[in-house]
Nucleic acid binder design. Structure first.
Lengths: 329, 329
DNA sequence: GAAGAAGCTGAGAACGCTATCATGCTGCGC
DNA sequence: GCGCAGCATGATAGCGTTCTCAGCTTCTTC
């Protein structure tokens, strides 16, 4: 395990420099030397020390990923896409969960920096300050963007996605459409709310009291949905801002014995494995989750490769998938 | 970014050695020196270079994690538990997906070794050879164990868990109980099959033709379940070996318009977020997924800390959660 | 007041690698 | 024969830390 180039060199009867040259494939080396060095390298079980290499080459071949919680399927899919792209280029992903807490996020980014990652992909926590994003290695923001942080960012068309959902419900004749959402401090959430508002305002049907804001867990979603459905004049349809809210809304509807879509129509943002397993299957605004990670990885690798120029914002399209929960089928 | 101890020392008007001492909190340093070094460190924005530190200290404060696919909720939960434990001790997790392929797994482990992780947690791919597990840094196997790989391992009581599921179905009067499973090359799967067999043999009801083996994806689960349900004398109950198989079985039942639990009782291994959302809610053998990761992390940290002694195998308990899909309620 | 302990400091040696340089050696053309 | 390109090799200088050591100053103690 602790066999070094020096050990290999000694065993092969050449100098450290020569051994380094053949193992590192640079400079000259006689065929004889090559053969002997390779032979003793495999015999001794030599594994190049990436740490030492990183120190001199100033590149760790490592990229950092900061997400809220890898246990959230959205983040897991993102991580998968990212890791696929960067691993194909010899990079490895350092994973950190920040639990949607700006302070933990700051510390995580510091730790990654200290480890000298070549770049990082961050899903900013709600309320994150832009300071953490100002200097440091190349950074790509994902899903959300911090105000004033001039970095590359990869997101989906949140407003358009939300609007497509609400428009669909409007098209089905609903006039009281509620929204269950997490904090608008999250930029993607704010955009979804904006899309919701725009769609309703266009029809003169916007009622601010039908927006129920909660925390970002599933339990919070349940509470927020319950608050909305407990009202005397409850909405006939609900649009939820993310998968946790969707789950919470489903729970709330069940609690109140509301039948979907007869008593309540439902459209959620973000598709998941189980949305086709529930009855009725859920109508959703699907996001290209894997692509989010992949595109972020490509952006990052480009920057690491030296790409210059102003920050780029990439927006990926969402897609409304109509299934049973909105009553259209 | 590239400010080193040397730069800080210069700015503070002391030698590199003194600056290093105060920044590294070892040896002596006058109060005067401390103040000035800290001052210029923050002024210059000094971030210690973890790579250099790792080189001399021979510890990267990094642990590697090799899973099949982080997008699988089981692995995501494991990753979360592991990361929680090790991050609290200043470690960071290097994540790799091996896609259940021994060759990719081997390469991933090599890459992690080259990066000099202080330890690694591996969920061995089906068919993995033990060679990769023989030398190298401390290693903990998770969920499965490779034959002949004498490392610590953390798993659940697979056989007992499976048996509890099948016993439950037997208790409800079922006599034709099928099993949908992925490859028995996976040790945990093999144990679940063994548990299934044992329960049925005890009643003289074992029928090998009711075991439907497929691949490890959801689609494979569907195929395997369909094969079982298409038989002339189809089973009245099915036990599925993991969450993908459960999903597949649900799909197959729907295809054939079988009502659960009236036409078909179902018990799955591994609980998931959505199992209470489907109708009827699923009866499952629940695994302590987060604990698997946490315990593996603790084991690993203990070994990294120098714990000696023979390999330890830890088994965590499963729990049968009876809901509606088996017809007991 | 001398001896020793304790406080403080800078020089310098690793860690294991990459990469440059100077020094040979061979072969070729004139 | 000489010069010069091309090949091959070992010495050696970093990369940015950690940490030992020798040296110097200051304080304590008998």
């Amino acid at each position: 395990m602790t066999v070094t180039v020096r050990d290999v060199a000694r065993a092969a009867g050449v100098s450290q420099a020569t051994a380094a040259r053949v193992l590192g494939k640079y400079g000259y080396a006689s065929d004889e030397a090559k053969v002997r060095v390779h032979a003793s390298a495999t015999e001794l079980g030599y594994t190049p020390n990436g740490v030492a290499r990183a120190l001199v080459s100033r590149a760790t071949q490592t990229i950092g990923l900061v997400v809220g919680d890898i246990d959230n399927p959205f983040f897991a899919a993102v991580a998968r896409g990212l890791s696929d792209v960067v691993e194909s280029q010899g990079y490895t992903v350092l994973l950190t969960n920040a639990d949607e807490d700006p302070e933990r996020e700051r510390r995580a980014m510091l730790a990654l920096r200290s480890r000298r990652v070549d770049g990082m992909v961050v899903v900013p926590a709600p309320g994150a300050g832009r300071d953490a994003f100002l200097d440091g290695p190349p950074l790509v923001q994902l899903d959300r963007a911090v105000r004033g942080a001039a970095t590359d960012a990869v997101m989906v068309h949140n407003a358009a996605g939300a609007r497509s959902a609400v428009d669909h419900l409007l098209g089905l004749g609903h006039t009281r459409i509620g929204m269950v959402t997490d904090s608008p401090q999250i930029s993607s959430t704010a955009e979804r709310i904006a899309g919701y508002r725009r769609a309703l305002r266009a029809k003169g049907l916007l009622d601010e009291s039908l927006i129920s804001v909660g925390g970002s867990s599933q339990a919070d979603g349940l509470v927020a949905a319950r608050a909305l459905l407990d009202r005397p004049e409850r909405p006939t349809a609900i649009f939820t801002a993310n998968n946790f809210m969707t789950h919470g809304a489903l729970l709330a509807a069940r609690e109140l014995r509301l039948r979907i879509p007869r008593d309540l129509a439902l459209v959620g943002f973000d598709d998941l494995d189980w949305t086709t397993l529930v009855d009725p299957p859920l109508t959703v605004v699907s996001q290209p989750v894997g692509d989010l990670g992949r595109v972020a990885g490509e952006r990052l690798l480009a920057r690491i490769g030296g790409e210059d120029g102003p920050p780029r914002r990439v927006r990926l399209a969402t897609r409304l998938i109509v299934r049973g929960s909105c009553g259209a089928l």
